[in-house]
């Protein structure tokens, strides 16, 4: 369990990569997170998260094509591995369990 524990940010990054499917690379991941979660992250922070997850084997990457906007520098695409998917599922299961255990009444907002 311990090795596959996901941080909240890591979880979002993993899910975003899966949403983006074939087109997950630095800029697209960053912009997707910005548009969905309204969360501005720096490319540096994203790099740290990606490289850690790659070390853990949750994602893998390969070099892609270059274009003019990028000053001729190739992209690096990311893809979630089976281990990554398993870690996501684990995280989701724990959450679902917890959500189910919460008494219905507590879910209403309190306006005391």
């Amino acid at each position: 369990m311990k090795g596959t524990h996901l941080g909240e940010f890591q979880e979002i990054v993993l899910l975003t990569i899966m949403v983006l499917n074939e087109n997950a690379y630095g800029v697209s991941i960053k912009r997707e997170i910005k548009s969905r979660a309204d969360r501005a992250i720096s490319r540096g922070a994203l790099h740290t998260a990606l490289s850690r997850m790659e070390d853990k084997g949750l994602i893998k990457s390969w070099q892609g094509e270059a274009n003019k906007e990028r000053g001729g520098m190739p992209k690096r695409y990311y893809e979630v591995t089976n281990k990554g998917i398993a870690a996501l599922k684990d995280a989701k299961d724990i959450r679902d369990q917890l959500w189910n255990e919460v008494p219905k009444l507590r879910l209403q907002h309190n306006y005391a």
Binding site: R43, E69, M73, K75
Partner: peptide, 8 residues
Amino acid sequence: ELQGDLLE
């Protein structure tokens, strides 16, 4: 990778 992303 990183400079490319920044430039894009």
